[in-house]
Every structure is written in C-alpha cells, then in structure tokens.
C-alpha cells in the first residue's frame, strides 16, 4: 500500500471545499425540483464534489508513491507566522480611521503583511514576494498613482530573483513606466490615477 501524498492532499482540499460549501449552503432555500431555490444547484455540486473527493482519497491510498518535499521547520513556522501576522494586520487596519481602514485597504494590508512575513524564508520568496508585490500595486495605485505603484512593486518583485542588478531594475522601472503610460493612459485612456495627488 503506497500512499500518494499529492492525491491525499488534493482529496483533503476537495472534501474541505465541499464540506464548507455544504455548511454555507444551509442558509439558502433548496426549493423543489420544479421551482428550484438558490440552494439547489450548489447542494448538488457540493455533494458531487464530496463524492469525488472521497474517490480521490480512496485512490490515493493505492496509486502512490508520489511524495512532496517535506517543509523545513522555518518554512512551516514562517508560513504560520505570516497567516497570523497577516490576519492580525488586516484586523488592526480595519479598525483604524482614515485611509488605512477605508474600502479594501485592510484586506490589501493584511495580504501584504502576511506575504512579506513568509518571504523572509528564501524558499518561499518566489511565491510570496510576487504575491506581495502584486498586492502592493493594488494598495498604492489609488492613493499614489500608477507610476509610484509600478516602481515600488517592480522593485519589490525584483528581490524574488537573485540575478537582478540594481541598474537593470532601474532601467526596467523606467521602461515600464513609459510603456504603461503610453499604452494604458495615452492610448486606451483607462481611468487610473497616474501621479500622486496631494
């Protein structure tokens, strides 16, 4: 009996989604087969998902081995720290007055802080530094404008790759700012703040 770790986790993921979905779906009216309520189709979908998850689980016990590399201590530690830190930062931000607590900024701040904490560990950097840079773009775009958002998130994302040199990054920032201005602002005329507004 060889356990397929990847399938086992996949099964857990599918079953997890199905169970949470079925639980959330308890709020919705099922209705009858003739006049189906909003909860009817989700119920069907989540039960099928649960069944499929169970089949994947069953198969995973036999069709292995397909191990995934074990995470090291720091990797697990910082992942948890990131989750906790990010959630905390988001909640704190939501309670703050002004820009920090407005609109979707708490979500962005939480995501950003969480991703930054995890990217302390080098092996997590590609995943979480890119996510952090993408989030940062969203955070800065409206208050500081397109140019600042491009510059900061490109610089941050550059740390995800070791082959970068400072001059190359600066050149890239300048090039992207010029290109995005030409394409998105000058030509397509999309509604985005370009420069910081004071």
């Amino acid at each position: 009996m060889k356990i397929n770790t990847k399938d086992l986790i996949s099964a857990a993921l599918l079953i997890g989604f199905a169970v949470v979905g079925l639980w959330l779906n308890m709020d919705h009216t099922l209705g009858t087969a003739r006049r189906m309520g909003p909860g009817y189709m989700p119920m069907l979908a989540f039960w099928i998902l649960l069944g499929l998850g169970a089949i994947v689980l069953l198969l995973s016990l036999f069709n292995g081995p397909d191990p995934i590399p074990m995470w090291t201590g720091p990797e697990i530690g910082f992942l948890l720290a990131g989750a906790v830190g990010g959630t905390a930062a988001g909640l704190v931000a939501a309670g703050m007055p002004g820009w920090v607590g407005a609109g979707w900024n708490p979500l962005g701040i939480g995501l950003f802080v969480g991703c930054m904490i995890v990217s302390v560990v080098k092996s997590w950097r590609p995943l979480f530094l890119i996510s952090a840079a993408f989030t940062l773009f969203g955070l800065l775009l409206e208050p500081l404008g397109l140019m600042v958002a491009i510059a900061t998130s490109v610089v941050l994302s550059a740390f995800a790759d070791e082959t970068h040199k400072p001059v190359g990054v600066l050149g890239l920032v300048a090039f992207l700012c010029a290109l995005c201005w030409a394409v998105f602002i000058y030509e397509l005329d999309i509604r985005v703040p370009v420069w910081p507004v004071f």
């Binding site: 890119i130 969203g138 491009i150 998130s153 490109v154 082959t163 992207l176």
Partner: peptide, 17 residues
C-alpha cells in the same frame, strides 16, 4: 528577470481596469 515584472504589471493594470 525582465519579463516577469512586466507580465505582473500588465496583469495588475488589466485586472484593475
């Protein structure tokens, strides 16, 4: 190393818009 930040920025602007 020059491609990925560019793809990222173009995606971000596109999604936002």
């Amino acid at each position: 190393r020059f491609m990925y930040p560019s793809i990222m920025i173009f995606c971000a602007i596109g999604v936002y818009s």
